[in-house]
Design a protein around this nucleic acid. Sequence first.
DNA 1: CAAGAAGTCAAATGGCGATTTGAAATCGGC
DNA 2: GCCGATTTCAAATCGCCATTTGACTTCTTG
Lengths: 218, 218
Amino acid sequence: MSSVADETRARLLKVAGPLFAQHGFRDTGVKTICDAADCNVAAVNYHFHSKQDFYGAVLAEAHQNAFAMRPMPRASVGTPAAALTAWLWWWMESMLHPGRPEWLQTLMAREMAFPTPALDQMVKRSIRPIYNELTAIVRRLLPRGSRLTVVRDCVHSVIGQVLVYKHAAPVLHRLSAMPTYQRGGLARLVANVVTFSLAGIAAIAAQKPSSRSKKIRR
Amino acid sequence: MSSVADETRARLLKVAGPLFAQHGFRDTGVKTICDAADCNVAAVNYHFHSKQDFYGAVLAEAHQNAFAMRPMPRASVGTPAAALTAWLWWWMESMLHPGRPEWLQTLMAREMAFPTPALDQMVKRSIRPIYNELTAIVRRLLPRGSRLTVVRDCVHSVIGQVLVYKHAAPVLHRLSAMPTYQRGGLARLVANVVTFSLAGIAAIAAQKPSSRSKKIRR
DNA sequence: CAAGAAGTCAAATGGCGATTTGAAATCGGC
DNA sequence: GCCGATTTCAAATCGCCATTTGACTTCTTG
């Protein structure tokens, strides 16, 4: 409980996020982190028990900083369509905005596709609330008695449209297809995803008047 | 050029795919692979130059087996909507079908999110043709003079809806939201993605009569 | 069937990276 | 300004893993 003591502790936490995000947990050496934080290799094992525990602390810290100063909008705002629009603006800006703590979203994306023991905690703390909120919004856009599987399909379709820019980023770069998130770029992208999603959900809703139905092609 | 000689070579190639898919390149030891293939650790360095080259050979092999016996439908079939439907059936069955060489898609997904030096080759050989084909289909669903960025947004929205089931699988499992790909499950999922995508693209098309336009909300 | 080529093997090598250690330095309260 | 506790440091340790080595076995071919 000293003042100067855990100054390096804080320095480690601050410096590690971007590094883990860029190279992943396995490919980021303790040596590298400590060099960046300008301290000895033993520091991470002294202040945190192990590299794995340290990684967990970084994730927790990042979660605090990100979701505290940028709270998720609740579903109760206006019409269902307005709610989805507002929510998508919030989430896509959180996930894709190039500014500030950009690496947190990258870390989450990384953890999603390549789980470490820290994923369970992250799902409970960060991901499940987001998922539940979107599910609630989508449910209001669908007919009353829609099957759970259909609701989920729509939720996943919305999520996928956003996550693709994180999970397939290396490929999109190689295809020269990575959008620029500058001023206009991100806004245009969000608007398109909103339009696309609202129309998509509406089509699913129209297809199932309420009860069960056979597959509809045409 | 012997007969019994490269029998173990073939055995290594056959056995490594699932292992790499399950644990990733870094976390799959040569020891593990050779145990599974029932041969000595030196084999992989004898038949292929290094572990990295061996991995490249596994990817190439997998590509052959997968896309040779399941060719991609060309865009020229019928109406644009029919083309997208046919193409999505092909791609989603290739990506999500639980049967046979399931691990190839998992390997591709892995490579997308966590590139190794083998990604460049994979993009050129496997991914770019797929991407170009879908782009051609989507372009026919949009107005003549649509901007390239808009076409791309739609392509990515379609891709994302499918990839999410690969890239976010660990999370979806923890959310109890992973769909079952049994008999009816996959068909229903594909049908929903088709409906969702066609409506989404139509909405984007309707929104931009052809020239430029300001952001359209609500 | 001989002899060389090709393949297999157990054991060694070498490097990398997380963790530990024990001594030195710094801090906090008195 | 001193003493015990906390924090830092350079060096050692330890385990893991890809790769090499050199002897041994198995093929091929004339």
